[in-house]
Computed example of a mutant assay.
Amino acid sequence: MKTVEKPVRTEPYTLLRASLAMYQKAPDKLEPAELKRAQAQARNEYKLESRVLGAPEASGVIIPERELQMAYKEIRDRYEEESEFLSDLAKNRLTEETLRQALYRQCKVNAVLESVAARAPEVNEVEIGIYYHLHAEKFNRPELRDACHIFISINPDYPENTRENAEARIQEICAKLHKKPHKFAELALKHSECPTSLNGGSLGKVPRGKLYPELDAVLFNLKAGEVSEVVESEIGFHVLLCKQIHRAETISLKNATPKIRQLMKERYRRNCQRAWLANLPVAEPEGNSYGG
Rank of each mutant, 00 (worst) to 15 (best):
E96D: 01
R100I: 00
H246M: 06
V230C: 08
N155E: 10
V112A: 08
P281I: 05
G204E: 02
A33L: 07
G54H: 14
Q69I: 04
R76P: 03
E45N: 15
R169E: 13
S202V: 06
E49H: 15
V126L: 08
P56M: 04
S202L: 10
V231H: 07
H191D: 14
I75V: 12
L68F: 09
E97Y: 01
Q273G: 08
H246N: 05
P207V: 07
Y268L: 13
E143L: 08
I152H: 07
S19M: 06
P207L: 02
A217E: 14
E232V: 08
V126F: 15
E286T: 05
A21Y: 11
V282T: 15
I260V: 02
K36Q: 11
A40W: 06
G291Q: 14
L16S: 10
R105V: 01
R145Y: 09
H182M: 08
A175C: 05
R208H: 13
H133Y: 14
H238D: 08
A224P: 06
K36R: 10
S19K: 03
R43E: 08
R76E: 14
A40E: 11
E186G: 03
Q41W: 05
P207I: 04
E160H: 07
E97K: 07
E172R: 15
E232P: 05
S289L: 14
C148E: 11
D157Y: 04
N255Y: 02
Q244E: 10
A283R: 09
T95Y: 01
K190Y: 13
K223T: 03
H133P: 00
A90P: 00
K183D: 12
R100Q: 05
A120P: 11
K179S: 11
E11G: 00
S19G: 12
L68P: 04
L68N: 06
A58T: 06
R145K: 06
V61E: 13
A18C: 12
G200L: 15
L15S: 10
E97D: 11
A33D: 13
A166P: 02
C148K: 13
G236L: 06
L94I: 01
R141G: 03
Q171N: 09
E49T: 00
L20Y: 07
R100H: 06
I251Y: 02
I245E: 02
K73D: 13
K243I: 02
D28Q: 09
R270H: 08
G292V: 08
E65V: 08
L15G: 07
A248G: 00
I128R: 07
L113E: 09
S202E: 12
L68M: 13
A55G: 11
P121R: 15
Y23V: 10
K29Y: 05
E193V: 02
A111K: 14
Y158M: 13
V227Y: 06
A283I: 04
E232L: 03
S50C: 05
P27D: 03
A175E: 12
A42V: 04
Q171Y: 00
E49S: 11
N44E: 10
G236S: 06
A117K: 11
K29N: 09
R269K: 14
P32C: 13
A58Y: 09
M70C: 00
K25Q: 06
D77V: 09
L94Y: 02
V123S: 14
E234H: 07
E234F: 02
E266Y: 03
L263E: 15
R270V: 08
Q101A: 09
V282G: 07
Y23L: 14
C194W: 12
K259E: 15
C174T: 09
T257M: 01
H191R: 04
E127V: 01
